[in-house]
Write a protein that binds this DNA or RNA. Structure first.
Lengths: 181, 181
DNA sequence: ACATACTTTCAGTATTGATTGAAAGTACGA
DNA sequence: TCGTACTTTCAATCAATACTGAAAGTATGT
């Protein structure tokens, strides 16, 4: 008698939990090395692989974090547009679910980081270049040239990201891919 | 009698220093919001707008940081390939200069972050998808589908970054830009 | 072998950012 | 209006990360 090829639900559950925990941990690590709060990334990971909307209490239990922490990070995720809150009829409690479409997630992150971090930096770069435009001493000339080059580069990158993020569909990058290299 | 249109070197120097300080500060802020040590980003900014290679002591003085801090961050920048050390003949001291070509800087950063952060994450994602491939319970199916979609997306993004970073020239993105939107 | 000029390390400290938990706030139904 | 079920806030605490500075290490010239 050989072992059955199909695993018992209990065994499957165990295997799933292990994989899910690893996924959540890794998404947290990735987040923090890109300047995103680790807990926020972990909540996001958890919600991305949940089949039903989760309550604050479920999230607190799953990630072993405090109510305050769960609450604040959920608010931030909603603010980013990566998570939305849903209310079930007849229930007072608030539940949360994440956007699951990978391309939409990507576009949202691009759009938000552009707005929060690239645009302010671009203004400063432009300003640095502008206010040293007429200067004649060599040090100033070099500074102007370098900041101008940076500001033009960032502006170009901003344009690319704009187009990618606005499109909200996955066909464009694979298409553009053909023209690279 | 009108003021002369040309500013004195002293006035220019003052204007330059103000702009330079703002640039260094902003580059530091940008770095830290993208997960890069603020001091490292500031040293990088300083070297990008310096006309001559700088010694550790000059960097320490300019940014008001300790020797240890300057040293470690300079090593990291050299490790990233964004800064190289130069030795002047007849001098014992080590001097540092940054790559100034904006496109090369961008490619280096892309290549390094890909290697340090995207590739390890990709392995974990693939692993999470693979080890839940055969499972039949709905939760596991959902987990598998989501991690598979993520891993394929990251793999695709990795491919795009590869081509962009390998090319090392600025003509390709503006060209690809035409095909977007 | 020694002095000088520099670089490197790292234990201790400071700074920053994240987390807790309990108190205050809000909304709803009885 | 009161009680219950929940959400929100925030001062205090904790954890992670960055920074300092002095001591140890290394290379070079005499």
């Amino acid at each position: 008698m050989t072992k059955p090829a199909i695993k018992t639900p209990a065994a499957q559950q165990e295997q799933l939990t292990a994989a899910r925990d690893e996924f959540i941990a890794q998404w947290g690590i990735m987040g923090s090395s890109w300047g995103i709060n680790r807990t926020m990334a972990q909540i996001h990971a958890l919600l991305m692989v949940s089949t039903t909307p989760q309550s604050t209490d479920e999230i607190m239990a799953e990630l072993e974090i405090s109510r305050g922490n769960a609450h604040m990070n959920l608010r931030d995720l909603v603010g980013w547009g990566l998570v939305r809150s849903v209310i079930r009829k007849g229930e007072r409690k608030e539940f949360f679910e994440a956007e699951k479409d990978v391309w939409k997630i990507f576009c949202t992150v691009v759009r938000e980081r552009k707005r929060r971090e690239i645009e302010p930096a671009m203004l400063v770069l432009r300003d640095c270049a502008a206010r040293t435009a007429g200067l004649t001493i060599p040090e100033a000339k070099a500074f102007h040239d370098q900041t101008k080059a940076l500001s033009e580069f960032v502006q170009m990158a901003d344009g690319v990201l704009n187009k990618i993020a606005k499109s909200e569909k996955s066909s464009i990058v694979p298409f553009a891919l053909k023209f690279l290299k």
